[in-house]
Design a protein around this nucleic acid. Structure first.
Length: 866
RNA sequence: GCGGACGUGGUGGAACUGGUAGACACACAGGACUUAAAAUCCUGAGGGGGAAACCCCGUCCGGGUUCGACUCCCGGCGUCCGCACCA
């Protein structure tokens, strides 16, 4: 029976060794350059999933690599521990959110530790720890003092049966997920952070984020959504009182002559005023309010409108009027909540116009189009061109027409003010942080009838969540708690009530990276610690956080800078967004989802492992509990060991792309680790440790040495770029070369081969160590070392072994490869050309034709054009 | 609907700044070892034609730029992610 590497057992051993030596504990007083690597911290949902394994493996490779490169590495871990699922568990299973959360944390901490991550566990924090949210309340008060906190009315999804605000994901087809009740949009006052104060700065600073993916920067820029345009004041005709002007914001003032209607949001003050007198309008608005508040839902609805009967005067066409509709696709949150519709040049306006029989007049003529024949069919024309049908704008370009219209309307007065004013708008809205929930950080404010909103004095912090709460009745437990919210007003001493809203969990995750620098400080941050560690050098997480979390964290860091808690504006110097983990889906004959472990394959057919019934194999999708296509990392780690799971996660698929978890792939990864272990054992047996380097090397030893040093160089560059899959391929190549070397040199290798084999094995172990740290330690020890490979410096390749004297380049004739040429690396252009033209295949391909041109790119290619 | 990405053999993917497409791996096939199987080791392979040398086709589809395009440009198709109270 062949000997095998008992991964689970040995992994535990090496983890204990690392822990005993405190290898991964970071301190600020260290002469080495600092390096802060952070993966997005997990939500403690119960058990870790494969997405976590992938995320934390990548971060750990970076941490271990940078440590070997001589950096003082900070690599901490914590828990994003407040949030909705804990309350759901409380409602569904009667478990207190705190118990549920801390139990989950205990389980998941154990699971993460079994992965062998090089984490400084002494810095562990959970956002639901009293100490953490105490510090967060201090930050809130400082932001309040700095004028970055405000109160605004916002729309929420209200479930009238459960008497609770619903998250967008809890609204399904306009109904509450638990109650099934038709939801209502409701306006309520909430606390907001004034992120819009920083809109321009957040946009401008994207340019400086050189180590962020372009796509994330682009998404953030679009999200901030700066647009330059014009607010236009339209005079109304026969409108309710106080509504003699309606303001619209537009980025296309050039198309004003093509306007055929005005549309206002269902929540626009004019709409409300109309509804007071008109029951049909009120009914239409009510109908709009039975839809969810999410943008996706609003914008995919069928476009509907209600003619208010109000008319507005066209600003530039005498005696022309436009009807004013209340429309379900206009939102109050953007611009002024009102638009003018130009159907010919906006797709949404066109669909609306077609539905309500409104005129469609083109005013922008595409280049080369015939002004007499050009009409709009089913598609609006949104491109450039010249204006026509537009009076004084005729034959101007789109940009010139925008300017001309802006100047014209600036001079025209409505009620004594200019009719048009240039305006820069941002799509970005202020960040609403109020949540009507129990399991979050209490907002430290007090409502006093006499004094208004009063911040809780710092000496009275923390505002602690009460433990004695129940979830058996609808509503917010904080609001109905018998005593918790009743306090004396800090200003006047009279009776007052606490704010019962808690903070959005995005607040918690907007500064945890700063807290990791000094997790036990009595203030939110310690200036020495954050000054030393921040910004995070490499941040790694899912692309689903590309906008919200990352933008909030960027804002919050600026806010903390302004209030003196940190000295940087940007929290994350480098960002990497990894792909998801996917798996096939399975259903049985009744259409019930099956777990992968319940499915087996025989002769290529999928069947139920126990009953043998046929199973239908569905599409490959992101692992989710609802579709049961999940594999538990614990099972994998227990059966194969952590290194196998880690190795699989890094192999083959580029880290930014989705990876498909397959049984076969895991088996393959595991087989390689076994082979690796055997190879090292073989080398140790045949090429014992010895000091002297031989005077010279034969061709075989030389070639193995080249392979070794090439692998070191290539793995180094791959890891620098986080190209883990190509690093893995390089390691396979070296393992293959080492294997071939053992094969050809036999049981008693020559002296030079003994050196080359041992060198190859040692380098192989060292460059694999960040990715499979346990097996690397085991192998390092097998090779007779008493040090830890985790403490070895990263190897540097010998430059002389990386350069080849000759290169092989392709020779093309008319762009088709016909032969190849091996020639001295530094051969002159003329020599390469001459040699290429002599090749039989090239001569034949030219076929006696006249040579028009020969392109020679030294070390790359020759192309003969004939 | 809006915004962002991705698309290469049976499969995951490689290919630096436009220069030999398919490295490396998985699956597969053949061979060695074995009483046998597993494990392991060796060999093969994009598709088509040919005994071979070699030839033709080939990076989602259709155009374009170039001596040369997986790579750049224009237009399609398909898949995935985000959309502000999931985290």
């Amino acid at each position: 029976m062949a000997e095998r590497y008992d991964a689970p057992k040995r992994e535990k051993h090496w983890q204990d060794v690392w822990e005993r030596q405190g290898l991964f504990q970071a301190a600020e007083d260290d002469p080495r350059p600092k390096y802060y690597v952070l993966e997005m911290f997990p939500y403690p949902s119960g058990r870790i999933h494969m997405g976590h394994v992938r995320n934390y493996t990548m971060g750990d490779v970076v941490a271990r690599y940078m440590r070997a490169k001589g950096h003082n590495v900070l690599h901490p871990m914590g828990w994003d521990a407040f949030g909705l699922p804990a309350e759901n568990a409380a409602i569904e299973r009667g478990i207190h959110p705190a118990k549920w959360t801390y139990d989950n944390i205990a389980t998941m901490r154990g699971q993460l530790k079994s992965m062998g991550l090089s984490i400084d566990w002494s810095r562990e924090i959970a956002t639901c720890d009293l100490d953490y949210y105490h510090q967060q309340q201090k930050l809130f008060l400082d932001l309040f003092k700095a004028g970055l906190v405000d109160r605004k009315t916002r729309k929420v999804n209200w479930d009238p049966v459960d008497q609770t605000v619903l998250a967008n994901e809890q609204v399904i087809d306009g109904r509450g997920w638990r109650s099934g009740a038709l939801i209502e949009q409701r306006e309520q006052p909430e606390w907001v952070f004034k992120i819009t104060d920083y809109a321009q700065d957040l946009l401008d600073a994207l340019n400086g984020l050189e180590r962020w993916p372009d796509k994330v920067k682009l998404m953030q820029a679009n999200w901030i959504g700066r647009s330059e345009g014009l607010t236009i004041r339209f005079e109304t005709i026969s409108a309710p009182r106080d509504h003699d002007v309606i303001e619209v914001f537009t980025t296309r003032p050039d198309t004003l002559f093509g306007a055929s209607f005005m549309a206002i949001a269902p929540d626009h003050p004019l709409a409300k005023a109309v509804a007071e007198k008109n029951p049909a309008a009120a009914a239409f608005i009510a109908e709009c309010h039975h839809h969810g508040t999410s943008a996706a839902e609003i914008e995919t609805q069928e476009k509907k409108g209600f003619d208010t009967g109000v008319r507005v005067a066209h600003p530039t066409i005498n005696d022309a009027t436009l009807p004013v509709y209340i429309a379900n696709f206009i939102v109050m949150e953007y611009g002024t909540g009102a638009i003018f519709g130009c159907p010919a040049h906006d797709q949404r306006d066109l669909e609306f116009a077609r539905a309500y029989g409104l005129p469609v007049l083109p005013v922008v003529l595409p280049p080369d189009a015939d002004p007499k024949a050009f009409t709009i069919g089913g598609e609006a024309y949104t491109g450039g061109g010249t204006l026509f049908n537009s009076s004084f704008l005729d034959w101007l370009g789109v940009e010139a027409a925008k300017q001309a219209m802006a100047e014209y309307l600036a001079k025209k007065k409505v009620n004594g003010r200019p009719q048009g004013v240039r305006k820069t708008e941002y799509r970005l809205r202020d960040w609403g942080i109020s949540r009507q929930r129990y399991w979050g950080c209490p907002i430290p404010m007090i409502h006093c009838e006499k004094c208004g909103m009063v911040p809780v004095p710092e000496k009275d912090l923390p505002v602690r969540l009460p433990d004695d709460v129940s979830f058996d009745v609808p509503g917010n437990p904080l609001d109905r708690h018998p005593t918790w919210k009743h306090v004396a007003c800090p200003t006047c001493g009279g009776p007052a009530t606490r704010e019962t809203d808690t903070m959005d969990t995005f607040v918690d995750s907007s500064w945890y990276f700063a807290r990791f620098c000094s997790p036990h400080a009595n203030e939110p941050t310690d200036s020495n610690a954050v000054g030393y560690w921040l910004p995070v050098d490499q941040y790694i997480g899912g692309v689903e956080h590309a906008i919200l979390h990352l933008l909030y964290a960027r804002f919050f860091t600026r806010a903390m800078h302004k209030t003196g808690h940190v000295s940087v504006d940007e929290p994350f110097g480098g960002l990497f967004t990894q792909g998801m983990v996917t798996h096939e889906t399975y259903k049985d004959s009744q259409g019930k989802w099956l777990l992968p472990e319940e499915v087996t394959r025989r002769e290529g057919k999928a069947m139920h492992a126990k009953t043998g019934e046929p199973v239908s194999v569905g599409s490959v999708e992101s692992m989710s509990k609802s579709k049961k296509n999940v594999v538990d990392p614990d099972d994998i780690i227990q059966a194969y060991g952590a290194d196998t799971a880690r190795w699989f996660m890094l192999s083959d698929t580029p880290p930014e792309r989705d990876i498909e978890w397959t049984e076969a792939g895991v088996d393959g990864a595991h087989r390689f680790l076994q082979r690796f272990w055997r190879l090292i054992g073989e080398v140790d047996a045949r090429a014992p440790k010895e000091a002297a380097k031989p005077g010279g090397f034969g061709p075989e030893a030389e070639s193995l040495r080249r392979a070794s040093h090439r692998a070191v160089a290539n793995v180094t560059t791959a890891l620098e770029k986080l190209r883990f899959n190509t690093a893995v391929a390089q390691i396979y190549e070296l393992a293959n070369a080492l294997s071939a070397g053992l094969q050809t040199s036999g049981l008693q290798p020559s002296e030079d081969m003994r050196y080359a084999l041992r060198e190859a094995a040692e380098l192989l172990v060292r460059i694999s160590a960040p990715m499979m740290p346990h097996l690397a330690e085991e192998s390092w020890a097998m090779l007779g070392h008493t040090t830890l490979v985790a403490e070895e410096p990263w190897p540097a390749p010998e430059k002389a072994l990386l350069q080849e004297d000759t290169v092989t380049i392709a020779v093309q004739v008319n762009g088709k490869r016909r032969d190849e040429l091996t020639i001295a690396r530094d051969a002159a252009k003329e020599d390469i050309e001459a040699a290429a033209l002599k090749l039989d295949n090239v001569v034949r391909a030219i076929g006696g034709r006249k040579i028009k041109k020969v392109v020679v790119v030294p070390q790359r290619i020759v192309n003969v054009v004939a």
